[in-house]
Simulated scan of single mutants.
Amino acid sequence: MRIMSVVGARPQFVKLGPIARAFRSHPEIEHLIVHTGQHYDPMLSDAFFADLEIEPPTVHLGVGSGTHGRQTGAMLADLDGVLEEHAPDWVLVYGDTNSTLAAAIAAVKMHIPLAHLEAGLRSFNRRMPEEHNRVLTDHAADLLLAPTEVAVQHLVNEGLGGKARLVGDVMTDVCFSTRDAVAGDHPTLPAGVSPDAPYVVATIHRADNTDDPARLSAIADALGQVAAPVVLLAHPRLVAKAAQAGIELARGGVHVVSPLAYPQMVRTVAGAAGVITDSGGLQKEAYLLRTPCTTLRSETEWVETLVDGWNILDPALERLTEVAVRPRPTGQQAQPYGDGRAASRVAQVLLDEGRPVEVGSR
């Protein structure tokens, strides 16, 4: 069976790692990887392939940045030829990026079976381009690989329950294995930040937080007032938007650094007193690493992280200085994201499903 994974952004590379390893354990699976180039910074792309021991992409489209429409359209145009040349039995897409939607449309138009990993997540916020991508992909796909019971229920509510399979969350697989591998390492911190004192890890990249200069300036002010050093892992989008608006990110106790390779990021988050983010993936990684998180959004796809206050939503920045550094919740933490063996279930489900007899009956 020939399976083609289409990826293009940092969270997808992380999910691809355990999937690629699981596929390698099945000689009957031929795995092809298409990298769209949606994230082209080496620290957001090449380093993840090396750190997660993923084989080099079969095809690299090199699309790069652009508006949502232009970026998605460029990928869609290029993917037609890739699918024609390699004729996969399944196209496997990951998460909620423009790469996901482009590959989904390309596969559907060419009647190639489509499987969606991380299906069923919903923020119910249609301002988010990620919400458009995930909803459209779910409704186009032949097979919906859901990470949680909540995600399965969302699919059932939308009439898609017959295509849903609960496999667990592959992010749990890679997060736990990486956590164990780097347990003895020191956190990767800039000069002036001690691993022996409380510090906070922050990431900001979503359009609602970066595109309005007033909003971005307010976030920068709030980060600067946190009562511990803040290690801001500055996504290229954040850097560009701050520069365009003339906003200085390094204020107060904020240390602006480049994104970390995944193993260093896991170790640094595990040692932190808190995480501040608008990233869906980092909310969940913080939860899995037992680090309290504060999310600068009004909603989260990962509602399970809110239980017992492991994650707190603070879209108005009203509580950030109060809750950014807080004690870990006491008591037994639930395990809604699986046992760390989701990737092997994904491989087995795809093998069991085979190629759908009537592709296109969506």
Rank of each mutant, 00 (worst) to 15 (best):
P236Q: 08
D211N: 14
V256C: 04
A250T: 05
I105R: 06
M75K: 03
G159R: 04
R362C: 13
R326G: 05
A106Y: 06
R267G: 07
D180P: 08
R2M: 11
L260S: 06
L83A: 02
E84T: 14
D278G: 01
G66S: 10
P147N: 10
Q153G: 10
V230W: 08
V239R: 15
L351D: 11
R319C: 06
T178H: 04
D314A: 05
Y287I: 09
H39K: 08
A250G: 08
P198V: 12
A324W: 00
G360N: 11
V7S: 00
D46A: 15
I312F: 08
V59Q: 04
S65T: 15
A228T: 05
T294E: 06
V182F: 03
E131T: 06
R127W: 05
E318D: 15
G354D: 10
V226N: 03
L223A: 02
P229S: 12
H132C: 12
E358I: 14
Q153L: 12
R126T: 12
L117A: 04
L223P: 00
A146C: 11
R290C: 10
L249R: 05
A151N: 07
D196A: 14
L144D: 02
G69S: 14
R319K: 13
M110T: 13
V14E: 04
M43T: 15
A77S: 12
G331C: 01
G66H: 10
V359K: 02
E53K: 13
H154W: 07
D352N: 12
M128P: 03
A103N: 04
E84S: 14
I276K: 01
C293E: 02
I247M: 08
A240M: 12
S45N: 15
G168L: 00
L166T: 06
I312V: 15
V108P: 02
V230M: 09
N98E: 05
G69Y: 08
N125T: 12
Q332S: 11
P147S: 11
H186Q: 15
A316H: 13
G331I: 00
L16P: 00
P190Y: 01
G340I: 01
P18Q: 05
V170T: 14
R326N: 07
A250Q: 06
A9K: 09
A343M: 09
L136E: 09
G64T: 04
G184R: 11
L32H: 05
L288Q: 01
R21I: 13
I29K: 03
D46C: 09
P129M: 06
V357E: 15
P198A: 11
L79H: 00
D96R: 10
A9N: 11
L101F: 06
P195N: 09
P229V: 11
A343W: 03
E248A: 14
L296T: 06
S65V: 11
L223R: 04
Q283M: 02
S298A: 15
T67V: 14
G338W: 05
G168S: 03
V325D: 00
P213A: 10
Y199K: 05
Q283V: 02
L61I: 01
A228Q: 05
G340T: 06
Q225E: 15
E85S: 12
D212Q: 14
W90M: 10
R206T: 09
G95E: 01
I112P: 04
G161Q: 05
I54K: 04
L320S: 03
Y337V: 07
D196T: 15
I247Q: 09
D169M: 01
